[in-house]
Amino acid sequence: MNRILVVAEMALREIVRRRGVLLLLVLLPLLFYYSRRDEAYWQSVRMVTLGIGFTLSTAALFAGMGARTMDPRLRLSGYSASQLYLGRLVALWAVGCTVCVPFFLLIRLDIDHVRYEAVVLLMALTVAVSAPLGLAVSALLPRELEGMLVLLSVVCLQILLNPDKTVAHVLPFWFSREIGTYAIEHDAGTGYVTRGCLHAAITFAVLLILVGGLSSIRLRRRAHLSTA
């Protein structure tokens, strides 16, 4: 546990020192929010969470890519692969939750007639899914540019695709449409929340397994090495 917390602390320090990332973490969701504020304010709630999802997964991508040269050394120093990625996830979740606070307050003060508890749920699930999404992309792709393009494509598709289409269901933030609908439409039933939570839970589990599996393979103990 101590090792996970030390990795989390150091990952947090690294993220906080990336001033540009911090600025984008705040600025981009804000732009997403105001892009729909005047003509379709109810969509602002969903847009701001997509903005948080995109920036947090991008921060996770950079954290994962940056750790590539350090991880083998840490593995040889006694860390397990799971301690490394769990520590990084804890740091990213902490950053994500912190970023969500001002945006929740913004919605609370700026938009009336919204189910605020659903907004909290939506933000929490977005943060939970975004961190492993970015780490999974960083583990699958060789460079940051490719990873950024993939994450950008995911968010664009999430916005552009008809959510009723089956293909939209496999996108990682599909749940935001469901829970967002419940948050802003008062005649929407709890079925939206159930479907959204189920989708988020499955997405989270798949991403976590992917991150864990890829990290374990990359940092595995090679078969040719035996220790006494």
Binding site: R18, G66, T69, M70, P72, R73, G78, L225, T227
Partner: peptide, 25 residues
Amino acid sequence: SPDEGQVRLRGTIGYCPQDGGTAGF
């Protein structure tokens, strides 16, 4: 991993890579 061969290690290991191995921030 090698294509062939074995390595037997007795004790803990410290590794200094040619480049990388530190975190810039």
